[in-house]
Structures are given as C-alpha cells and as structure tokens.
Amino acid sequence: MNTEPRQRNNAACGLAAILILGMLALPYFLSSYYLGLAIEMMIFALFAMSLDLLVGYAGMASLGHAAYFGVAAYTTGLLALRLGWNVWLALPAGVLMAALTAALFGLLALRTRGSYFLMITLALSQVAWGIAFGWRTLTGGDDGLPDVPRPALNLPLHLSWSLAGSTAFYYFVLVAITVATLLLIRIVISPFGFALRGIRESEARMLALGYNVWRYKFVAFVLAAVFAGFAGCLYVYYNRFVSPDYLHVARSAEVLLMVILGGAGTLIGPAVGAAVIVLLQNLISAYTERWLLILGIVYVFVALFAPNGLVGVFLEYRASRIKRHVKRLNS
C-alpha cells in the first residue's frame, strides 16, 4: 500500500469524476420517481455535510440543525409563493435568513458546551418550530404552505429555463449541490478547517495558542446554517411544499443520525449516511407503516455497533487487511 498523498488525491479525483459522470447520466436511466429519490438524497447529503462541519470538525453536537433548514425553506417558499420572487432573489434571501437565525441562536447556544449545547440547540430550534406552527396567518400553521412554484432560471439575454420538469430540476440540483460541496471541501481543508479540528481536540490548547476560539465556533455555526439553509431552499423547490415538520426535532435528530451513521469528521461519510437513510425510508415506507419503529432501531444499532460510522467500519476493515498482509510478508 504505497499511497503517497498525491496518488491518493489523484484516486479521489478520479472517483469524483466517475461519480459526477454517473450522476450526469442518471436521468437517461431512471424513471421520474427514482430521479426524485436521487434529488432527495443529494439535498439531504448537503444537509448532513453542513451539520458535520459542526459535529465532526468543530466537535459541537447540535440537536437543532433542522431550524436553519426549515427557516430557509419557509423564507424562500413564502417569498416565491406570496410575492412571486424569482429564484435568484428568493433563494439567497432564504439562505440569509438561515444565517441570521444562526447568528442569533449562536450567541445564546455558544455560551455552553456538551450536553447543555445539545439541549439548548434543541430548545432554540423548537422556538422556530413554535413560530411556524403557531403563526397561522403567515405560515399556514400545521397545514404548511402548499403549491410553492418550481422556479424558472431567468438567465441574461432573456433566456428562460423552466425547472418544472424533473430532469431539468435534477440538473439544477446537481449543479447546486456540486458547487456547495466543493465550497465545503475548500472550507474543511483551509486553515480555518484545521483550526476547527484543533478546537474539537482541545479548546484550552487552541486558546493558549492565541486563537479566538469563540469567534471560530461562531463562524462555523453560521456557516453550517448557511449550507443547511441552502439545502432547505432546494428542498422546498423540490417538494413544492413546506410544513412545520421541516424544523421538528425529529428532523434534527435524523440529520445527526445521518452524520454519525456515515462517519463524522469526513464529508463523504455523512453524504453516504444521508443517502442510506433516505433510501431506507423510501423502501421501508412502501412496505410498512412502522417506519418510526425501524428508524428507532437504526438509531440504537448505530450507537451500539457503528459509533464511528460506515467510514469507520471501512477503515477498520482496511486496517485489518493491511495487518494480515504485513503478517503474511513477515512469515
């Protein structure tokens, strides 16, 4: 196994290229139902990766991440539905709203850590849920907002590309998610990303090194909300609907499960975790109404048997293979 970093990078780039080519070709093979499933997987992959920035890199376990997903979805949905704003205005407005919410919540939540942080992010997200649920005149309350229009991309020179069809919308989401993922990778491998890892390992040491730990955590908190909000905006356009369920604790916990199931601290892990959960949900819901029960069992199994996620399982498998290989060489 002579994997020099450069070679490994090349291999990763090759894999990514194959993946993207495969994704580009998908609409030619899949029916619109499965294409929808693929869209959902991509959106939740981004949502999970955004949370991983907090959980996996900065070591802050949030149980209220759906708040930013939902706030952005409501903002974009309302602006598109009530004021007829186009996607170029409504989508950034949604993301901005998610960032502002996170900045406000972050001021409160970042004063704590550990279990307190978990509980407080949960309680704060429930404030957002309470508003969505209670303020019927604005949000439609429990019924949500139906009939959010699929956007059309109004490009310069009066070119308009409608995203109403599932293939067109699929490509729109694919481009959006690819760009967002590249940005996330850039963040994670930047000095900022390494500082977050340092904070995860030892806050005291980073303080001693002169880092303004609070500011790093605050920026990470808002950035994670920005990407979660972006995923939420895409989801409201995809589903053409938004309801208080978008910001419920159950969704916050689900995205945390995706992160842990895949493997926190890597970007690929949570993306895989999201794909697995979305796929399972769609497959199992077709056969039984007991999806919640099965999801609950998945939570327990992941905690018991795969605390480092699928990536962890894969790495252990590879390590044991290398060990066996070395033993064979020695004997």
Binding site: A61, L257, I260, A264, G296, Y299, A303
Partner: peptide, 11 residues
C-alpha cells in the same frame, strides 16, 4: 454524549 443522544432518541 453523542452515542447517548442517539441511543435515547432511538428509544
């Protein structure tokens, strides 16, 4: 705390 949260939420 993370496995604890997953476990208790699962239950």
């Amino acid at each position: 705390e993370l496995p604890q949260a997953l476990l208790t939420f699962g239950f």
